[in-house]
């Protein structure tokens, strides 16, 4: 039997890997992938806590997870559209080179 701490460990590791990807990468698409990993870690936490703490018919954790996945899909669509718009205008997706508004 798997203890809840096992799922929490996987979720924390996943979140921190995604955080590193979002902080360290230069390519905007890779940054977006890191953010997706962090959202997935949050969803895993929601489902693990629902199953272990309160597995009633209200399915609170699963309902929250559905909404998080919906918002993640919307976020990735808008984010990639923004990246493509930036690529059209500036001819780069490296975030270090997108410094038009830097003082």
């Amino acid at each position: 039997m798997v203890p809840l701490a096992g799922y929490l460990f996987v979720s924390a590791a996943l979140f921190c890997i995604g955080l590193y990807g979002a902080l360290a990468r230069r390519n905007a698409v890779a940054i977006l992938m890191g953010i997706e990993m962090m959202l997935n870690a949050a969803v895993l936490n929601l489902i693990a806590f629902w199953r272990y703490i309160n597995p009633d018919a209200a399915l609170t954790g699963q309902a929250f997870a559905v909404f998080v996945i919906t918002l993640a899909a919307a976020e990735v669509a808008v984010g990639l559209a923004l990246i493509i718009a930036v690529y059209r205008n500036r001819d780069t997706v490296v975030v270090d080179d997108v410094n038009l508004m830097k003082g």
Partner: peptide, 12 residues
């Protein structure tokens, strides 16, 4: 922390 163990069944 001391976490609760797995409840028997879910109604998922």
């Amino acid at each position: 922390l001391k976490w609760p163990s797995l409840p028997e069944q879910s109604v998922s």
